[in-house]
């Protein structure tokens, strides 16, 4: 298996092509933003098919957090072809990552601006060769002291809410997503927030200005010295109320 950015996946674009692609992508982004109320996918590059920029719309390098445990996270993240699926997100892990220290491997989407009072549905496909997962949407708001602007980055916003995570297994509860190697490619979804929110939850939910999709490989099984993978594709987030 070859991992992005090897040449067979990456197709260097000519200047004209690159420029065109850039324009198209941006147009698409704005169109997507504008049509958010219409229930379309709010995630940029949710299918990981953007080959012009590696993991465009996603954060995978956490060196800026200063957390040494996460400093090498980006070396375990790739976009690859898995079976019949082209361009899927691959999170690579071993026992140290999953259990011994247990920081896992993760990616986060860029912050998605949302209007207050929304209910959303996150749909995602995943496959694992060992790791379990935690896939959920987190609510963020502007960090104190940051002047609001149109293209916030994760380091400019602050977490204030964690919505219920996506459960792939039969039990729709717990701290892990419940994906296992035997399940193959599995599609699951989660609707949030809860319709009956407590006062405490409501206080925090009212602060949410952005949504970030958090995908992490944790726990599960491993086959040292081989790597095990969590594959993710077709990430779709839509607003289900008007």
């Amino acid at each position: 298996m070859s991992l992005y950015p090897l040449s067979f996946v990456r197709r260097p674009a000519s200047g004209l092509f690159r420029h065109s692609a850039f324009c198209i992508l941006h147009s698409a982004f704005f169109l997507l933003s504008a049509s958010a109320w219409a229930g379309s996918n709010l995630v940029v590059n949710g299918h990981f098919s953007d080959t012009n920029e590696f993991l465009h719309g996603w954060k995978y390098n956490y060196e800026d957090t200063g957390n040494e445990l996460m400093a090498a996270n980006h070396t375990h993240v790739a976009v690859t072809n898995e079976g019949s699926k082209n361009h899927v997100l691959a999170l690579q892990a071993n026992k140290i990552l999953l259990w011994d220290i247990g920081q896992g491997v993760m990616v986060d989407s860029d912050p998605i601006p949302v209007a207050p009072g929304g209910r959303f549905k996150l749909t995602i496909s995943a496959k694992s060769t060992g790791p379990n997962c935690r896939i959920l949407v987190e609510g963020y708001r502007w960090k104190p002291g940051v002047k609001p602007h149109a293209h916030p980055k994760l380091k400019e916003v602050r977490k204030c809410y964690r919505f219920a995570q996506v459960y792939f297994g039969a039990e729709k509860a717990g701290t892990m997503g419940g994906i296992s190697p035997a399940m193959g490619w599995t599609k699951a979804s989660q609707t949030f927030p809860d319709e009956k929110m407590t006062k405490l939850a409501l206080e925090s939910f009212d602060k949410v200005q952005f949504l970030v999709i958090h995908i992490a490989a944790f726990s599960g099984t491993w086959k040292d010295p081989e790597w095990v993978y969590l594959y993710v594709d077709d990430v779709e987030l839509e607003r289900i109320n008007k």
């Binding site: 977490k159 204030c160 809410y161 964690r162 509860a173 949030f192 809860d194 405490l200 939850a201 206080e203």
Partner: peptide, 10 residues
């Protein structure tokens, strides 16, 4: 700063 987490209890 406080982060609220929705938990689905088993």
């Amino acid at each position: 700063f406080q982060v609220y987490e929705e938990v689905k209890q088993k």
